[in-house]
Every structure is written in structure tokens, then in C-alpha cells.
């Protein structure tokens, strides 16, 4: 059967770094050690002035093409997930098509999701491939949330970092699907819990006021309430068990929330991936950045395939869960 699979992933991070020492100097009631202990994050990568999500997206895509030795002409669809676009219009994916030299016959579109975006993107790529409309989909996640943060808001500055990831999803022949049907969830009633109020057309920006506000307790309650249900929903939809999954790669929101989820779902620590210490919460790129080192290197002999559960959750509120073979 024709099935979509995750072939390769490459990340790209800006050079700038925000360390816990720098944060502790700005927010004296938290020591650098306490920030690390509570968030699981040692440093975040921060885009420079004039460096945008599209620049990071291009860096990740170029790294992926180089790593795979892939000709841009072989990509027939480009999906770009970002909430920090260069322009209101045109579509960032169109600009990225030109920058990368993808064929003009390629389809390209942006979709605006945050921490659930990678899993949604996988579902879109799977649908394009398994319906015969595309053979090689380039799924790029990229954001520069640092540009939306209030410098005095400790609760978000300790968590978010900038970054991008490019994932190649391609058509292969296999005995069984390599990406199971994805399960989704949406609750727009919680939209205000993670929100940049200004800068759209409802409340135009007056300059300098495009700021992310997060209601931490509400987001925590949402996560602890909905993520376990999404996991149950995925198991029911796919007929799989927790034990069948070798790895669990959840959105890397922060170390505290991940540890709570791990305990609530009774997942063994060695199967539960936590990989955000050097990058922080990179929004839609956390799952592919954590997944990248777990994929087999190009050209390496293929070992036993492993099954991973991916769960994205956050701004929207929006969530999605997938079971994939890597």
C-alpha cells in the first residue's frame, strides 16, 4: 500500500542565546538554578533583530535538503506552520518556495497553529500523499515568539525560544500505514488563555503592543485535562496500546508540565522524551526538534523500526495526537 512516512528532519536555530543567569539578573526572585529546576530549560535561542521565522524556516529547509542530498525539484508540496509571519500577505510558504528554488509546479500554503502545529502538519502531509496529490511534502515549522514577549513577563520569557524545523514526509510502499490516522481537538473558548490581542484587524496594533499573554494556571489545567483524553482518543482510534509505543514525544512545553503528564499517564521515563534544555519551548518546532536525533541517520543501516506517539497541545486551544513509525 501507498503510505506517508517521516523520512528526515533538520532543525535550525538562531545564534542568540538567553541564559538563566541573564534571566536571574533581570528577575532577582528566581535564581538561575531555580529556573532550570522548574522549567527544565538552561537556555533559549533568540532571533536577532531583522531575523524572522521565514529566515529560520529557510535555514531548516536548506539543512534538510543538504542532509538528504535532495534536489529542490523533487519537492512537490510545501507546508509552512508559523504564527510569526514576515508579512500579512503574501503567504510565507510562497516566499519560501522561491527562496528554496522549489519548482513552480509545487503547492505551498501556510497554516496558523502553535504548539499543535507539527502534528496537524503531519496529518495534512499524510492526506496529500495518501490521496495521490503529492509525493514529497516539505513540512516546515518556524516561529520567533521572542518578538512577542513582554521583557518584564518572567512567566513566558523563561519558557519560549525561537527556532525552526523542516520535516520531509514522503510516499513509500509498505505493508501497513507508517503514520496512523491523527486525532484532533479544538476549544476556542480557551483562546484568550494564550493570546496576542493586538496586531490583527479586530484590534489593530498601535505599535509595540503585539504582546503574548499567557494564563499559566488555565493552560496547565487545559493540558492536564485534555492531553490524557487525547492519548485515550488516539488509542481508541488506532486500536493500539501504550505498550506498543517505544517512544513518547510530546510538545516540549516545559519540564514541569511534561513531568506531570508523564506521571499522570504512567509512562516510563526512558520512553518519555524530554529534549528542550538547550532550546526552550520552540512552539510548533518542539516535537520535530526532539524527534530529529531519534531518527536514523541517512545512510545508516536500518534497525528495527520504532513506534512513537506524538502529541501537540497549546494555543487555540488546539491539540492533536499521532502514532507514527520512525
Amino acid at each position: 500500500m501507498l503510505t506517508a512516512r517521516i523520512k528526515a528532519i533538520a532543525g535550525h536555530l538562531p545564534e542568540g542565546r538567553l541564559t538563566n543567569d541573564a534571566l536571574a539578573a533581570r528577575f532577582p526572585d528566581w535564581s538561575a538554578d531555580k529556573i532550570l529546576e522548574k522549567t527544565g530549560i538552561a537556555e533559549r535561542r533568540i532571533a536577532a533583530d531583522g531575523e524572522t521565522a521565514l529566515d529560520l524556516a529557510e535555514g531548516a529547509a536548506r539543512a534538510l535538503l543538504a542532509k538528504e542530498g535532495l534536489d529542490p525539484a523533487e519537492i512537490d508540496f510545501l507546508l509552512l506552520c508559523t504564527q510569526t509571519p514576515d508579512y500579512v500577505l503574501p503567504t510565507g510558504a510562497c516566499l519560501l518556495q522561491a527562496r528554496l528554488g522549489l519548482p513552480t509546479s509545487a503547492g505551498a500554503l501556510d497554516f496558523n497553529l502553535g504548539c499543535s502545529g507539527f502534528v496537524y502538519g503531519l496529518s495534512l502531509a499524510k492526506a496529500l500523499i495518501e490521496s495521490g496529490q503529492a509525493k514529497r511534502v516539505l513540512l516546515v515549522t518556524a516561529d520567533t515568539y521572542s518578538k512577542l514577549l513582554d521583557p518584564d513577563d518572567q512567566s513566558v520569557r523563561t519558557l519560549f525560544g525561537d527556532g525552526a524545523a523542516a520535516t520531509l514526509v514522503e510516499a513509500v510502499e509498505a505493508d501497513a500505514p507508517l503514520i496512523d490516522p491523527v486525532v484532533f481537538g479544538t476549544d476556542g473558548k480557551g483562546g484568550e488563555h494564550l493570546m496576542v490581542r493586538r496586531g490583527g484587524f479586530r484590534e489593530p496594533s498601535a505599535g509595540g503592543d503585539m504582546v503574548l499573554r499567557m494564563d499559566g494556571p488555565a493552560v496547565m489545567a487545559f493540558t492536564l485535562g485534555h492531553v490524557p483524553k487525547a492519548v485515550d482518543g488516539l488509542l481508541q482510534r488506532t486500536g493500539r496500546t501504550m505498550e506498543e509505543h517505544d517512544l513518547f514525544v510530546f510538545h516540549q512545553a516545559n519540564g514541569f508540565i511534561l513531568e506531570r503528564l508523564r506521571r499522570k499517564l504512567a509512562i516510563a521515563p526512558e520512553r518519555f522524551v524530554i529534549d528542550m534544555r538547550e532550546v526552550g519551548n520552540t512552539v510548533s518546532s518542539t516535537i520535530p526538534l526532539a524527534l530529529a536525533p531519534l531518527l536514523q541517520a541517512a545512510g545508516a543501516p536500518r534497525g528495527a523500526p520504532r513506534r512513537a506517539m506524538l502529541v501537540g497541545f497549546g494555543v487555540g486551544l488546539s491539540w492533536a495526537a499521532a502514532s507514527v513509525v520512525i
Binding site: D215, G216, A221, R260, R263
Partner: peptide, 21 residues
């Protein structure tokens, strides 16, 4: 806010209920 978030998670773990933040 960190103490509130931590307490919310604690009550979920101990009592299985999610409090309103």
C-alpha cells in the same frame, strides 16, 4: 503564578480534580 500552577497540578494528582486557576 508558579506556586498556583504547581498547586493545581498537585490537587489533580492527589484528588483527581482540576481546579479553576
Amino acid at each position: 503564578s508558579l506556586a498556583i500552577i504547581s498547586t493545581l497540578a498537585l490537587v489533580d494528582e492527589v484528588h483527581g480534580v482540576l481546579l479553576d486557576g
